[in-house]
Design a protein around this nucleic acid. Structure first.
Length: 894
RNA sequence: GGGAGCUUAGCUCAGCUGGUUCAGAGCAUCUGCCUUACAAGCAGAGGGUCACAGGUUCGAACCCUGUAGCUCCCACCA
């Protein structure tokens, strides 16, 4: 059978994925085995796969597949997130294209459209994950807005409310006057812009004084006599909402106006002058106009000093009736106009150019206005305590641990969590209001009525209204590790008891607070136990220039296209190659190319082995015996290393170790060592013993690569030999190691150095690899045979490898460790070049010896260094001296 | 403004308790090879004042101090 020269992923991927599904290998149900559990960070239900998903799902699949091979009951729970904001935005956009405005629809109609949308596009992303090879238990697929999970969310809300952790309060939201909605902080883009800082004079009057600003004579007299205070602002239109002027209590300039009042231009409003150390005396004039309705800091000042709140903006960004002037005009128009009008009345002191940051809506690009609104909050102080403690004490590990600092800082300064969103797509807040604004929190309207009736027997359903808002999406995803196992519905269920706490969570550090910290909080609050043991934090995938991948930039490759181009295994390698834990990764397609090449290398190793014919009668040569013994030692050594790296979550190092074990040790050395020769153009057979060992090695290697490259490993596993039904690599046992022959590994080290030296000399002397040469190795006793001699002969294409007591004339020489080697060379040898080469070696070694001697002659080093270190230095000294002696001997012979 | 982190080869990064020939790996580069598994390959080579300046130590890429540059998080100052 002819085997293709290159590995073709297309023919294998669907085949094996369907096979695994059919065999239900991904399925997990509780049993007596140790569980190994990962819950997927649920992607947005209507989203499509991007590079970030590729990265963290590859890592999750690697972990889950290895756990499965380790004999654990591996359970990877997939699912999707309803993603209130993103999904609602998509549905709104879709409706808009159809000419439907959200405001024209009832809540019920809108939700109908939204569910249709979800049913149509939801789950595409999960289908895409299959292409990657993700071995999720698809029977367990959950959705954060399915009935059970929504019910859990509502129950948790009610429970936390009853415990006194949830309250209503006013909060400044980012209002998008174009989109007519509040947007989250994450959807606000701050840009630095050139604006103007206006200095505006406010007349000062006494407590019992009144003034009419239309009375020009009085105003001018006040201004001329210095009875005014100058404030600076970039938003002069907000003065219509001013209800105070604030200065620093220590500011000498303003001590004399204590107890006085300022008059707001235009509106003629008399407002108090307040003193607060929030003020920075150096900024502007050291006096701040306070507009509680339109600035969060001003709002806080207002609460502290009991100032009125006047909301001067309509939702669409025009001036409201409450503003009193310019009603119905857009705020930017008003800004220009009010400056002119103030100027005319002599209220403008000066105008400066000024750079400041302005927030823009990501979606509409409108300038965001801070706006007050009533929201629901979760008090974080008390319930977050165990979540902080258990990360600090190592009960939950963050990998890499540098994130502990960030986590600690955030948790120690934790803010109350605003959990309400002005959206329809999500879990509706279970609060019910009567027409006076009284409310109760209840699971159903009926319950709400009952609750109300205990206070007011007159109430009926007609007067009750449920809160219009929904809960923040994170308020459902923070329950994810519990709710996917029905831990709320059935708190003592088989699943939750078996799988919880889960083992590893793999996600990005950008949601450390949004999601990870909150899952930990919920875990302790509702299970009294952590939700996971380890959090593996990947980096953010960026492009080669370090920019975030985004649709706008168009710098994000389509993962599915990558898979088609390089194969799923190739792309998985590509992701892992550039993904050190916690560091952002600069993705480039060439990594996938490298991954594809690696697949091909493995494929060709298989092709080579498969092409050999076996001669059962042939006895195993000494060289082959040594080769097999060496590779076995090497393999065991590397498996131990790989296991250790897995345990430490050093994924990129683990990958590199696997890569080099396969490519360098197995393909470049081992297979070359045992590869049968050709005689007269005919390939020779291999002995059965060596062949069998090689197959066993190949199987071990395939098992090692399986978690990383599931498809090619399964394919070759089955092509390598006939297998019984159900003998699939995906469920094969992970390699166990045995004792390692270290002296053989050391001998190989020497032999491989000799081979490299000989090849190097061949190249520098232009000796063709086909031309046989001789090699002499010097040994005082004339023996010094190595198990690797036959291998050196083969790999160097020698006609003989002899031992000699004396140096060899007319030869090129080199020194490996302390041993001298000679290659007789008939053509004239460039003595000078030889001397130069050896002299360089000698200089280096002598320099090295010198540094060792300095240490050893240093009494304080000898006194202070640990014994092992000292022994080492002595050994280094002896080795270097022997080497110098060897080189000098060769040199003197020249 | 507050906090955290980073700076090692052309690129991406390892370097774990300060001490193995410690200055590494992969990629890229250069040179020679279409050698009967693989040119998506083989063989070989070159490449770094470990950001900079001090300090501690017998000994520093590693610990301390300062400086410069970069990144992220939080609060964002009228």
């Amino acid at each position: 059978m002819e085997i293709a020269k290159t590995y073709d992923p297309k023919t294998t991927e669907n085949k094996w994925y369907s096979h695994w599904l059919a065999k239900k290998y991904f399925r997990s149900v509780p049993d007596e085995r140790e569980p190994y559990t990962i819950v997927i960070p649920p992607p947005n239900v209507t989203g499509v796969l991007h590079m970030g998903h590729m990265l963290n799902n590859t890592i999750q699949d690697v972990l889950i597949r290895r756990a499965r091979m380790l004999g654990k009951n591996a359970c990877w729970v997939p699912g999707t997130d309803h993603a209130s904001i993103a999904t609602e935005a998509k549905v709104v956009a879709m409706l808009k294209e159809k000419g439907i405005s959200k405001t024209d629809l009832t809540r019920e109609d809108f939700l109908k459209h939204a569910w249709e949308w979800k049913d149509k596009y939801g789950g595409i992303i999960l289908k895409q994950l299959e292409k990657l090879g993700a071995s999720c238990d698809w029977d367990r697929t959950r959705f954060t807005m399915e009935d059970d999970l929504s019910e859990a969310v509502i129950d948790v809300f009610i429970d936390l409310y009853n415990k006194g952790h949830i309250y209503r309060g006013v909060r400044m939201v980012n209002w998008d006057p174009a989109g007519l909605t509040a947007v989250s902080d994450e959807e606000v883009i701050h840009k630095e812009v050139n604006s103007k800082l206006y200095y505006i004079k406010y007349i000062i009057i006494d407590k019992d004084e009144n003034i009419d600003l239309n009375d020009e004579a009085t105003v001018n007299r006040k201004l001329e006599t210095g009875n005014f205070i100058t404030v600076a602002t970039v938003r002069p239109e907000t003065i219509l909402g001013d209800t105070g002027v604030c200065v620093h209590p220590d500011d000498e300039r303003y001590k004399k106006i204590k107890g006085k009042f300022a008059v707001i231009p235009f509106v003629n409003r008399k407002v108090p002058i307040i003193f607060d150390d929030y003020i920075m005396m150096e900024f502007g004039t050291g006096a701040l106009k306070v507009t509680p309705a339109h600035d969060i800091n001003d709002y806080n000042l207002g609460i502290k000093h009991n100032l009125a709140v006047i909301d001067t903006l309509n939702p669409n960004g025009t001036m409201s009736d409450a503003a009193g002037f310019y009603i119905g005009k857009d705020r930017f128009e008003v800004r220009k106009q009010i400056v002119k009008d103030l100027e005319a009345k002599g209220h403008i002191a000066k105008v400066e150019d000024y750079k400041n940051k302005v927030g823009y809506s990501e979606r509409t690009n409108a300038v965001i206005e801070p706006r007050l609104s009533m929201q629901w909050f979760l008090k974080m102080q008390d319930i977050s305590k165990p979540a902080l403690d258990n990360v600090l004490n190592g009960n939950i590990k963050l990998i890499p641990d540098k994130f502990i600092n960030t986590y600690k800082h955030w948790m120690e300064n934790v803010h109350d969590w605003c959990i309400s969103r002005q959206l329809w797509w999500g879990q509706r807040i279970p609060a019910w209001y009567d027409d006076k604004g009284n409310y109760v929190v209840a699971k159903t309207e009926a319950e709400a009525i009952t609750k109300f009736k205990t206070h007011n027997s007159q109430l009926t359903t007609q007067n009750l209204k449920q809160d219009e808002d929904v809960l923040d999406t994170w308020f459902s995803s923070w329950l994810w590790p519990i709710s996917v196992f029905d831990g709320f519905k059935n708190p003592d269920g088989k699943d939750i008891n078996y799988y919880y706490p889960t083992n590893d969570l793999v996600t990005g550090p950008d949601i450390l607070f949004f999601w990870i910290a909150r899952m930990i909080i919920a875990g302790y609050e509702y299970r009294g136990e952590k939700p996971f043991e380890n959090v593996y934090l990947t980096g953010i995938v960026r492009d080669k220039q370090g920019r975030k991948m985004s649709k706008q930039l168009g710098n994000s490759p389509d993962p599915i296209e990558l898979i088609e181009k390089y194969g799923a295994d190739g792309v998985r390698i590509g992701m892992l190659l550039c993904a050190p834990a916690g560091n952002d990764l600069l993705f480039d397609e060439s990594y996938c190319e490298q991954g594809r090449n690696f697949c091909n290398k493995i494929w060709n190793a298989f092709r080579l082995v498969k092409g050999w014919s076996i001669d059962e009668k042939l006895t195993q040569s000494k060289g082959n015996k040594t080769s097999v013994e060496w590779f076995e030692a090497r393999l065991n050594e590397q498996i131990n290393l790989i296991d250790d790296l897995y345990d430490k979550y050093r994924m990129s190092e683990m990958l590199m170790t696997v890569y080099k074990l396969m490519w360098d040790d197995f393909c470049a050395w081992y297979l070359e060592m045992i590869k049968p020769d050709f005689v007269d153009g005919n390939p020779q057979p291999i002995d059965k013993k060596t062949y069998d060992s090689t197959i066993v090695f190949f199987e071990s290697l395939l098992k090692i690569i399986h978690p990383i490259m599931p498809f090619i490993s399964e394919e070759i596993w089955h092509l390598l030999k006939d297998r019984k039904e159900g003998d699939d690599i995906i469920i094969a046992s992970w390699n166990k190691t045995s004792a390692i022959n270290n002296s053989l590994l050391n001998e190989f080290e020497l032999a491989s150095n000799v081979v490299t030296e000989v090849r190097n000399i061949r190249k520098s002397k232009n000796i063709s690899p086909k031309e046989k040469i001789s090699l002499f190795q010097k040994a005082s006793n004339g023996e010094n045979k190595s198990a690797f001699d036959d291998i050196i002969i083969k790999l160097c294409n020698l006609d003989k490898l002899n031992t000699t007591k004396e140096k060899v004339e007319n030869a090129i020489s080199f020194v490996v460790k302390q041993i001298e080697y000679f290659i007789p060379f008939n053509n004239s040898i460039d003595i000078n070049a030889e001397i130069e080469r050896l002299q360089k070696e000698l200089d280096y070694t002598q320099g090295f010896l010198k540094s060792v001697m300095i240490k050893l002659s240093n009494e304080r080093f000898v006194a202070n260094a640990k014994p092992g270190i000292l022994d080492n230095e002595n050994k280094k000294k002896a080795d270097a001296e022997a080497r110098i002696k060897a080189i000098e001997e060769v040199l003197s012979s020249l």
